[in-house]
Design a binder for these strands. Structure first.
Lengths: 131, 131
DNA sequence: TTCGGAAGTTCCGAACTTCCGAACTATGGG
DNA sequence: CCCATAGTTCGGAAGTTCGGAACTTCCGAA
């Protein structure tokens, strides 16, 4: 399998980040990873609300998040460990992630009516997800 | 021509806003409207950098921005007057627009290498663009 | 070592979206 | 009325996304 590509912090692009987070499924996945700081296994997130996301779509969602620079994924045995690259993105685009996640959290049960059933996470954890 | 559709403030959706602004051309158009508060004529914005955007594409970009609730368009004679709906969006999603525009402005001459040739507008004008 | 299962990726066709030229529709002026 | 101007709609080509089936990789058990 091709080694995973992660953009350098200075290569982060606003348009890629917005595009990645413009999909409610991906935003929900990312919000989960932010909340947890690190999530093991893509399949841990294979449902948004009550809708099951097929493996291939999930794999693609993770790829989009990864290539936008929002998460860092590393193989750990048979599964994937995904970290939010919160600190790096925040350093380059201050306030961007917080306001986007807040916007989704504050928008009511609309986000594919599933991502708002769990408690909103307005302020992300500041655990050092950088590196 | 069909009367123009504008979503109500409570119908604004984060995903639609992010999708609208994920396109660098549209983001540049929107940044211009924000900077000016109000822009007359779509064709006033028909070039981003040195690239000319065809009329039909422009019309579509304006439609996407309008239907995301980012701008309000009204016919004024033969041309269109476009206002940023800054106050309404800000009221519902505080900080969102500012951090997105800041992200683009701070990203260097990359945004289709044209939108950064003019001075960045980190903080939007607070002229009452609501209504 | 070999088998089997679990986790992800790749492939590829169907469905959807975006782009842009050409034709069309409003609006105002002469 | 006719023309010019400013935008919109149509429609086809090109590109993107979605998801099922098949494939790869890794690990534990026999």
């Amino acid at each position: 399998m091709r080694p995973l590509f992660h953009p350098a912090p200075e290569d982060l692009q606003t348009s890629a980040i917005l595009h990645a987070l413009a999909d409610p499924n991906r935003a929900a996945i990312f919000a989960n990873i932010m909340r947890a700081g690190c999530v093991e296994a893509c399949s841990a997130l294979s449902a948004v609300g009550d809708r099951v996301i097929p493996k291939s779509s999930l794999s693609n969602h993770f790829k989009v998040l990864r290539e936008a620079g929002l998460i860092r994924s590393e193989r750990h045995g048979v599964e994937m460990r995904n970290h939010a690259r919160w600190a790096e993105v925040e350093a380059r685009f201050p306030g961007l992630l917080v306001s986007i996640l807040n916007a989704y959290a504050g928008e009511g049960p609309r986000m594919e009516d599933g991502a708002a059933e769990r408690p909103p996470a307005p302020i992300p954890p500041d655990n050092g997800s950088s590196v």
